[in-house]
């Protein structure tokens, strides 16, 4: 059912865990629906230097979280905002149709983390 990449990122997820000193945090989803993604980013200048995640959800949700944290590292905030659900799914070698919403969840959590960072950065200035 899942591609080799999805299974790899699910079985060996990258960048797992909390980031106490995160510059931006994005949470998307609801446990009632079966998936919640929490994404942490560390920003230097306008570049994402580190990312971590915690996810409650299925294999696809976990793989998407892992892949997205890999994809954002080293990108500027604007570049990171260009990461769409399709790009995440593509990087994972595709997702079953009924699991595409997991990919959506990842892109939305990332957006929220960046917004969170920008809000915090803005309020500091």
């Amino acid at each position: 059912m899942y591609s080799k990449e999805v299974m790899d990122h699910f079985m060996n997820p990258r960048n797992v865990g909390e980031m106490p000193d995160a510059d931006g945090v994005g949470v998307e989803g609801n446990p009632v629906c079966g998936d919640v993604m929490k994404l942490f980013i560390k920003v230097d200048g306008d570049r994402i230097v580190d990312a971590k995640f915690q996810t409650f959800g299925c294999g696809a949700a976990i793989a998407v979280s892992s892949m997205i944290t890999e994809m954002v590292k080293g990108k500027t905030l604007d570049e990171a905002l260009q990461i769409s659900k399709e790009k995440v799914a593509e990087a994972l070698g595709g997702l079953p149709p009924q699991k595409m919403h997991c990919s959506n969840l990842g892109a939305d959590a990332l957006k929220k983390a960046i917004e969170d960072y920008r809000q915090k950065a803005g309020s500091k200035n």
């Binding site: 997820p13 446990p31 915690q54 996810t55």
Partner: peptide
């Protein structure tokens, strides 16, 4: 991996 490992806070 779960954000709820310490409980269902926020739910």
């Amino acid at each position: 991996l779960s954000p709820f490992a310490k409980g269902w806070e926020g739910t």
